[in-house]
Nucleic acid binder design. Structure first.
Length: 487
RNA sequence: GGCCCCAUCGUCUAAUGGUUAGGACAGCGGGUUUUCAAUCCGUUAACGGGAGUUCAAUUCUCCCUGGGGCUGCCA
């Protein structure tokens, strides 16, 4: 099946857009079809420079790049690939013009010279009379010669669609099921703007016809425009694609997910350190479920089990809590070598020594099960690359039942016990043995010696275990840190 | 206001004409543990309301209520 994602380059890729793209990508992949990226740049005023790059990059980073349409070449330049282009709507103007002319000839569309001032006034009046704001068709029966004359005189105009008002348009949406719309409630939509650009409605129908889209997967906000699109396909005499409208992503207050209430830019989550696997896993679960109790899915698994039939109709609140959990799950699934490779540049940026550290993999392994985001790594590994400054306040922990007065004794105990571990046998097991064998006679509890040891070695309130840190630090460094004076 | 759509724990969701209405996240309690995290166990918490159909309705129908989307020469 050929599916497509068709965003406007008006800013970064919306997180809801990424979910829609994911659904479309999954359908294309599971049918061994093609996922097309088309850029809907028909609103010159709202276009943002660089937005197309961001959109493509976000899809790529997420792991769902387009197969056809707008994409990057090997050098990172935006190119178009495929036989149904161009894939930027701004490059298809003659095509839209041609088909809107056809509509004009067949009586499915008409010229409209109304000014926006008149339209505003009209709507205002309609609102006051509690009527549906709709174009009043003032220009629908303009004589041909008058129309021609006004156009020739350079008068600004648009082309509107003529809706058959007596009809009821019905459709069976892949997700929403049977839908029906009464013709007299549908507005005579503008198809071609006065600047010669098409509106979404015209461009969508023409493009998805010529690009041979089998299924249009888009957000639910398009549901009420659907009859216009259906009518256009019919007016052109073209087959209608299947439509699957997907439920919206919502703010906490259940309004349509918007910028004001949080970050809606998909790349924000990626740059913040969320794994694409976690992000897509989270998004796919918003509105869809596999019918089993499985919650963690790779993209490959999703390709085989995803289905639009199991997407339901109500909107889903975009609540990050579960994303954080999924992030943790995915972080822990990364092979440790890969994990180390990912964080190494980040850690090296702050601590040059990490770049040549032969034990980096072991240190990375220590934090993998407790880290949430890659950027936390430098902070979490800092004590391996710079000497900590432990304080008495931190060591004398009431929770561990440690009195300040006991601290020197405890540290002496640690020095003595660790001192007897042979240099060539410095490993976790022998460190454990050296300390725990002497524990009963010392009168200290485990926590009373291990908490101070950990703090002396790391200077931190939280960190991986004392034994593991000591092992990786090596004997001489461990002994050195135990000898540091407390502040 | 008009049109269209939707409605199960706080959130994401499952299931069913007869069930103790299931799971996950979060919350809470506990185990493990030198801290934090991770992990394990337990636990709080939902069918919006009213009619109708039926022996039986959370499930089917209708109405209401609530929520959302659209209502641009935006997409």
């Amino acid at each position: 099946m050929r599916t497509r994602f068709a965003p406007s380059p008006t800013g970064s890729l919306h997180i809801g857009g990424l979910r829609t793209a994911l659904f479309a990508w999954l359908i294309a992949k599971q049918t061994k079809g093609t996922f097309v990226l088309r850029i809907e740049d028909t609103d010159q005023a709202r276009e943002v420079v660089g937005a197309t790059q961001v959109i493509i990059r976000t899809l790529e980073l997420s792991g769902i790049p387009p197969d056809e349409g707008v994409m990057f070449d090997t050098t990172g330049e935006i190119v178009e690939k495929g036989e149904y282009g161009p894939y930027h709507q701004s490059k298809r103007l003659p095509l839209y013009r041609k088909y809107v002319d056809e509509l004009l000839e067949n009586g499915h569309a008409y010229h409209c010279f109304c000014t926006s001032e008149r339209l505003d006034a009209m709507r205002k009046k309609q609102q006051e009379l509690r009527l549906a704001p709709m174009y009043d068709r003032q220009c629908i029966n303009l004589p041909k010669d008058e129309t021609a004359k006004r156009i020739a005189a350079g008068e600004k105009h648009v082309i509107r669609m003529k809706i058959p008002r007596e009809e009821t348009v019905t459709y069976d949406d892949v997700i929403y099921g049977p839908l029906s719309f009464k013709g007299h409630t549908i507005d005579d939509q503008v198809l071609l703007k006065s600047d010669g650009f098409p509106t979404y409605h015209l461009a969508h129908v023409v493009d998805d016809h010529f690009m041979k889209t089998d299924m249009v997967i888009r957000g639910e906000e398009w549901l009420s425009s659907l009859p216009k699109h259906l009518l256009l396909f019919r007016a052109f005499g073209w087959d209608t694609p299947k439509y699957a409208h997907v439920p919206l992503l919502l703010n906490k207050d259940r309004t349509k997910l918007s910028k004001r209430q949080g970050d809606v830019a998909a790349e924000h989550y990626l740059t913040k350190g969320y794994l694409p696997e976690a992000l897509l896993n989270f998004l796919v679960l918003l509105g869809w479920n596999p019918g089993t109790e499985q919650e963690i899915f790779t993209l490959t698994e999703l390709i085989s089990i995803f289905s639009l039939e199991r997407v339901h109709k109500s909107g889903a609140v975009f609540d990050l809590e579960k994303l954080d959990w999924l992030q943790g799950q995915w972080m822990r699934r990364i092979p440790v070598e890969e994990f180390a490779a990912r964080i190494r540049p980040l850690v090296t940026e702050k601590y040059t020594a990490a770049g040549t550290d032969p034990d980096f993999l072991k240190r990375a392994a220590l934090i993998q099960e407790r880290i949430t985001f890659f950027p936390e790594a430098p902070e979490m590994l800092g004590y391996f690359y710079e000497s900590p400054s432990p304080t008495m306040a931190l060591i004398a922990s009431p929770k561990q039942k440690i009195e300040p007065a006991q601290v020197p004794t405890i540290i002496d105990f640690l020095k003595t016990q660790l001192g007897i571990v042979p240099d060539d046998n410095w490993n976790r097991d022998s460190i454990v043995a050296a300390i725990e064998q002497a524990l009963p006679a010392s009168g200290f509890k485990k926590g009373q010696v291990l908490w101070p040891l950990r703090v002396m070695l790391t200077g931190r309130e939280y960190s991986p275990g004392a034994y593991e840190v000591a092992e990786l630090l090596g004997k001489s460094e461990t002994m050195k840190r135990l000898a540091v004076a407390l502040s």
